[in-house]
């Protein structure tokens, strides 16, 4: 009987372990690779034989941390992302809360978009926003697009509410190369 109880406890402990990471307040970005974009590959397809470490592993840590995503949510308004993308519904920039992604909807794609900038108005933030914070914002954008687990996604903010908070949206994986949203079809 005691053994069964102990086994059950051990099983619960193993299942619960990811929570340690999920909630960690990792304030120092020391383990994040320095800003060396050329060493990070966007996909596993590449010319030549040089193996670049995939970006996914770097991004994974951010989109699986409730703390990092919430930091990203704060920075999203601090850095005026909402100036063009509004609260995710899009304005002069494309919407971020739907499942259509012009330049890819994985976190490393979003990271690259923010860092490098994109035609038709998306500026490059390389050197403007530290790497660590770009990842945070990217992770938050993922949560807007219903791409992170509901128990990690941020809840509502203490302000006026144009839409349901990220943790109330059901999971929906991004559609690669989905149809182009109207805002991108008619660039200003």
């Amino acid at each position: 009987m005691m053994r069964a109880v102990l086994l059950a406890l051990a099983a619960v402990a193993v299942l619960a372990l990811p929570s340690c990471k999920r909630e960690k307040r990792e304030t120092r970005a020391s383990t994040v690779p320095a800003e060396q974009p050329r060493q990070l590959a966007l996909s596993t397809n590449h010319a030549g034989s040089a193996q670049a470490p995939p970006m996914e592993s770097a991004g994974k840590r951010y989109e699986e941390s409730a703390y990092q995503i919430t930091e990203g949510k704060r920075l999203y308004t601090w850095f005026n992302c909402n100036g063009c993308h509004a609260n995710g519904g899009g304005d002069s920039g494309p919407p971020l809360m739907d499942d259509k992604w012009i330049y890819g909807g994985e976190i490393q794609n979003i990271y690259a978009t923010i860092q490098q900038g994109r035609p038709n108005g998306m500026p490059s933030f390389r050197g403007r926003i530290p790497d660590h914070q770009i990842w945070q914002v990217s992770a938050y954008v993922r949560s807007m697009g219903r791409n992170v687990r509901m128990d990690i996604a941020p809840s509502r903010n203490d302000d006026m509410h144009p839409r349901a908070s990220e943790n109330r949206l059901p999971l929906a994986p991004p559609v690669a190369g989905g149809s182009t949203p109207p805002s991108a079809q008619h660039p200003q």
Partner: peptide, 13 residues
């Protein structure tokens, strides 16, 4: 609140 509220206490703590 608001420190314990949704905006300033991320996660499930």
């Amino acid at each position: 609140v608001p420190l314990s509220g949704p905006e300033f206490s991320p996660g499930k703590r």
